[in-house]
Write a protein that binds this DNA or RNA. Structure first.
Length: 356
DNA sequence: AAGTCGGGGCG
DNA sequence: CGCCCAGACTT
């Protein structure tokens, strides 16, 4: 008998083994699926789930998100990374509110025109929410296709990417794209895994070219990587007489965009002098805190936190959009850079320990 | 086409 | 420690 098609095998496998109980699969509301798809960009399912639940509890409807302050959106995103996703999500919600009468658009071109939504995410949202037949191409689908069809080359190369899109487009189910796309993602996550593919339980094994050639572990071709440079800075923890800490808001573009962080003193400067001249606070006492390393996609960040006691006059004027005194005992809803939150948390624990 | 953008999980 | 993960955007 003739072998079932690629597409029908994926569909059958999804019905039998795929994931159907994820929090954003309960209904097919476009807004919920949209939020989940943005969170899932470059982020694994198990990491996303608690963030998704807190986010949806605070912003249950699209208009709740559109009408919220960006600061609070970033607060609920803090720790997930790629904060441009949160800013784009917020801006896109406002575009839907103002340009689409608050209804999430149903035309592919309209969806892809929203900030933060590219071809793959637009296809995912419209296929999952409305069963529209659009292909997707996330990391899982790339891996399944690259292996099954033995596609050579790093998928970041335009020619390789074009070939993978052609395959995804040709294979996507016309009748049940939602189940097919979810099936491909689940196959990539559960069977056709990066490190140790479970070919024995794969519905596509009989036709998989990489498996036939014993190359499933070396495809897809990995990204050529360079050694990450190391950047070091002092992080100044200015602490006033009321146990408040001075925070600065980071520029929207760049690392930790829009989040609140500690003043960053260059390594070639003297922290006491820098504190006096750049921050205009007279340092009274200084203490080293444990050094930390944070790794970004493109460099290591060595943080040398210094706790500096200062006197904070009550009549001093400050621009609260750029700098705030953050009370350790009374944390609010600002988005803090994750390593900064950990540093402040340690200080707060040690200070509460001293007082009782 | 290449670089930017976070944090976590895993071997 | 290196590598990757439900990518999109800028230059």
């Amino acid at each position: 008998m003739r072998m079932q098609s690629f597409t029908s095998r994926v569909l059958a496998w999804y019905v039998a083994h795929g994931r159907k109980e994820l929090p954003w699969q309960r209904d097919r509301e476009p807004y919920a699926i949209w939020v989940s798809e943005i969170m899932l960009q470059q982020t694994q399912v198990t990491t996303v789930i608690p963030y998704y639940q807190r986010f949806m509890q605070r912003f249950p409807k699209l208009l709740d998100l559109a009408n919220a302050d960006l600061d609070e959106v970033l607060h609920h995103w803090s720790g997930l990374g790629y904060y441009a996703r949160a800013r784009n999500l917020h801006a896109a919600a406002q575009q839907v509110r103002d340009g689409f009468d608050g209804q999430f658009p149903e035309r592919f071109e309209d969806v892809q025109s929203l900030p933060g939504i590219g071809r793959s995410t637009a296809g995912a949202i419209l296929s999952f929410a409305m069963n529209q037949p659009h292909p997707i191409l996330d990391g899982n689908v790339k891996r399944v296709l690259a292996r099954h069809f033995a596609v050579e080359g790093w998928p970041g190369q335009s020619a390789v990417l074009k070939r993978l899109w052609e395959l995804s487009d040709a294979l996507t189910s016309e009748t049940n794209p939602a189940a097919y796309n979810q099936g491909m993602m689940d196959l990539g996550a559960m069977i056709c895994r990066r490190g140790l593919p479970n070919c024995a339980e794969c519905p596509l094994q009989s036709s998989c070219q990489a498996h036939a050639e014993g190359r499933e572990k070396v495809l897809p071709t990995p990204k050529p990587r360079k050694k990450l440079p190391i950047k070091s800075s002092y992080l100044l923890v200015l602490r006033d007489q009321h146990d408040a800490v001075l925070l600065e808001r980071r520029p929207l573009m760049g690392v930790w965009g829009g989040l609140w962080s500690l003043p960053e003193c260059p390594m070639d400067a003297d922290p006491m002098t820098w504190c006096r001249e750049k921050l205009a606070y007279e340092p009274l006492d200084m203490m080293r805190l444990p050094q930390r390393r944070h790794t970004f996609s493109h460099y290591h960040f060595e943080m040398l936190p210094l706790e500096i006691a200062v006197n904070n006059p009550s009549n001093r004027v400050m621009d609260e959009g750029v700098r705030v005194w953050y009370k350790l005992s009374d944390p609010d809803t600002r988005g803090l850079a994750a390593p900064v939150a950990r540093i402040l948390n340690e200080i707060e624990i040690s200070s509460t320990g001293e007082n009782g």
